[in-house]
Structure formats: C-alpha cells, structure tokens
Design a protein around this nucleic acid. Structure first.
Length: 350
DNA sequence: CCGGGCCCTGAGCT
DNA sequence: AAGCTCAGGGCCC
C-alpha cells in the first residue's frame, strides 16, 4: 500500500501544464509565476485536503498522465498545484484587473500565501504522533489516512459555501459555488473550455432581488439564507465585522455567527475552524456523530438524532482528548470515516 | 430538553 | 420509466 503511494510521488513533475490557451482576456492583464516550496508529502495530502469537502473550488486537472494536478481559485488567483516527495509545486495565474496590489515576481510572496493557506507552520507529523498517543481510535484511522490539513480559507467564501452545504453533496455544492462565482465574481482568466472567477466580494453579492435570482439558479431554500445573510452581515459592518470575529474567543465567535440566518451550530463550527482560526472547533455532522457514538460516547447510541446537548458533548470530548488543534484531528477522522462509508456503499453495489 | 416535520434539488437506486 | 430515498442542516413547533 505505502509502496504504491511512494512510487506515485517519485515520478518527476512535468507535462500537462501548458497554460498558454487563455481566452477572452487581454494578454497583458494575465500574469504568471511558478515555483516550488519545500513540503514533504507526509505533511500534506493534496488530494484529500483540496477535494475532501473543506473547499469547493478545487478540481483535478484532466491530463493524459497519472500526474495529479489540481486547479482552483484562491486569494483571487488561479493556481495549479501538484507535489512530489519533497516539494509542493505551484503555478499561479493572475489578472491585473482583479488583483488588488501589484503583481509580484518575488517567489517569497507566493510562498507566503501558500504557507498561510495550508497553514504549513503547523507540523502535522508532530500532531499525528500526539493524537495517536491520545486515543486508540485515532491510532487506527490515522495510519490509513495521512496528512489531511485544515485549509485557512477566505471568510466570505467559506461562509457562503457552507450556507450552500446543508442537505447537499460535495458535487452539488461545488456546482452552486461555481455558479455564484460565475454570476457575481470577477473573471480572472479563461482556461481551455472553462472560465475562472474570483469568489464575489460581499458588496458584489449585495444586489437587488438576490434571493429570486439564486432561486432561479436552483439554490432552493438556501437562496433566502444567502440573501438574508449578505444583508445582515453588511448591516453589522461587513467584512470588518467578520474579520473581527477572529479576535473573539471561539465560543463568542460561534454565538455571533449563529445570529445570521442559515447558520446553525454545525455551519458556525465549520466557519470557526476553517476561516476564523479557531482550531478547536468541532463541526458535528452525521458522520462524526456516528464515530462519536461508536468510539467515544457509547451512551449516544440510544438516540438517533443529534440533539444540541449531544452536539456540545461531542465537541468537548474531542477537545479534551485532542487538545487545542482538536478540529484538525476531527478533520482526519472525518475523512477516514467518509472513505470507510463510501467503500461500504461501493461494496454494497456488487 | 427532546423529537418530528418541513424546506429545495438532483443523483442514484428500485 | 416514474417514483422513491437520501444527502456533510436549520428552523420552527
């Protein structure tokens, strides 16, 4: 098993990166930079981290090689990312008319952005060792599931994306998020058959009849949540108000978030964990509930639904066991559980 | 505090 | 082929 993974990453990085066929943008506006940064793959599982349901903006680029290259939008730029045993390899594509500052030709600038997005200052190997020691369940799941990181995402994008996430699968959430970007965000560049757009700013979403428009785009009842959330956040002070939530304690930030329509405990915890830096937040969904009742809190097996009391209990128990980065541990456990769940489903098909 | 019904949509299964 | 169930919730009763 490990052998297969290792071989995959040893292959030299090349091919498939011909990004010359841009469309519909004056070429002088489109700028590119490429580089690589030191990052062992034991510190980062790119595929699971990017496409495991944290962010809905990354896709695997189809190439005629087994190389895994991901393309997505982050911090207002289009990025392609891949990795080998020692490095994270990137290409960043910007549009000067979208970019707020000047385009940088300094590798350090882009490296800083990547290190911040992947929170590379946190040493996963050290965390994994501690979590394995902390609980037997982690020890068993983690050995199969390596190097999932919690992305440091942009607030507005993260918040709106998770308003779309209720009663939904990753696929459809991805489509909805793409739709909102295409309709309200600035275009960065065209690539092959698709265009890439930045996630819209709060103000760009503040348009008349937003709910009606979103309903027409098949957002369903989430349309009213999004439109109400946008107006309420702007009323409270917009991006500055959101940013300020980082200064509050985790509990305070969560309470504030839950005053916004469509944000309940689960979505609030997602936002706390993924874009406010409250790394002890534990979003409890049906999968985590299943795991918790099986391995951590047996008395929960009695009840089927997640009561608010059980919700609190699960978060507290995870924080007690896994410490200040409990949300990271939870993410690994979640990904492992999701994989187990999907395998079970796939097995049933036969 | 708990349980249940409802909300929209589309994929996947029957 | 049409109908059903279900999915990584929130809200209201």
């Amino acid at each position: 098993m490990a052998g297969i993974i290792v071989r995959k990453f040893i292959r030299p990085f090349a091919v498939g990166m011909n990004l010359d066929n841009f469309s519909n943008a004056p070429m002088e506006d489109v700028k590119r930079f490429q580089g690589r940064i030191l990052c062992k793959y034991t510190e980062l599982n790119l595929k699971t981290t990017l496409t495991g349901g944290q962010s809905f903006r990354w896709k695997r680029l189809q190439t005629h090689t087994p190389e895994e290259i991901f393309i997505g939008v982050m911090r207002g730029c289009v990025w392609t990312l891949s990795q080998n045993a020692t490095h994270l390899i990137y290409q960043v594509i910007c549009n000067k008319s979208v970019l707020k500052g000047d385009f940088s030709h300094n590798a350090l600038h882009w490296e800083r952005i990547l290190r911040d997005y992947f929170r590379l200052d946190i040493n996963l190997e050290v965390c994994y060792a501690a979590w394995k020691a902390a609980h037997d369940h982690f020890k068993q799941t983690a050995s199969y599931f390596c190097a999932v990181r919690v992305l440091n995402q942009e607030l507005v994008e993260n918040l709106i994306s998770f308003l779309c996430s209720q009663n939904n699968h990753i696929n459809r959430i991805t489509n909805l998020v793409e739709r909102i970007c295409a309709d309200y965000g600035k275009k960065i560049c065209g690539y092959k058959c698709g265009d890439y757009h930045a996630f819209p700013e709060l103000e760009e979403l503040n348009v008349p009849e937003l709910e009606k428009k979103l309903r027409a785009s098949k957002f369903g009842y989430r349309a009213s949540y999004i439109s109400k959330a946008v107006s309420m956040i702007i009323e409270k002070g917009g991006t500055a108000w959101l940013e300020n939530l980082k200064q509050l304690s985790y509990k305070e930030a969560k309470v504030e978030l839950m005053t916004i329509p469509g944000i309940g405990p689960k979505v609030a915890d997602c936002i706390c964990l993924m874009s406010l830096g409250h790394l002890g937040a534990i979003p409890v969904d049906t999968h985590i509930y299943e795991v918790a009742s099986l391995h951590y809190l047996p008395h929960l097996r009695k009840t089927k639904t997640i009561t608010s009391k059980a919700y609190e209990e699960i978060g507290d128990v995870f924080r007690n066991i896994y410490g200040p980065f409990a949300g990271w541990a939870q993410t690994v456990i979640f990904c492992a559980e999701l994989k187990r769940f999907n395998n079970k489903k796939a097995g049933k098909k036969k």
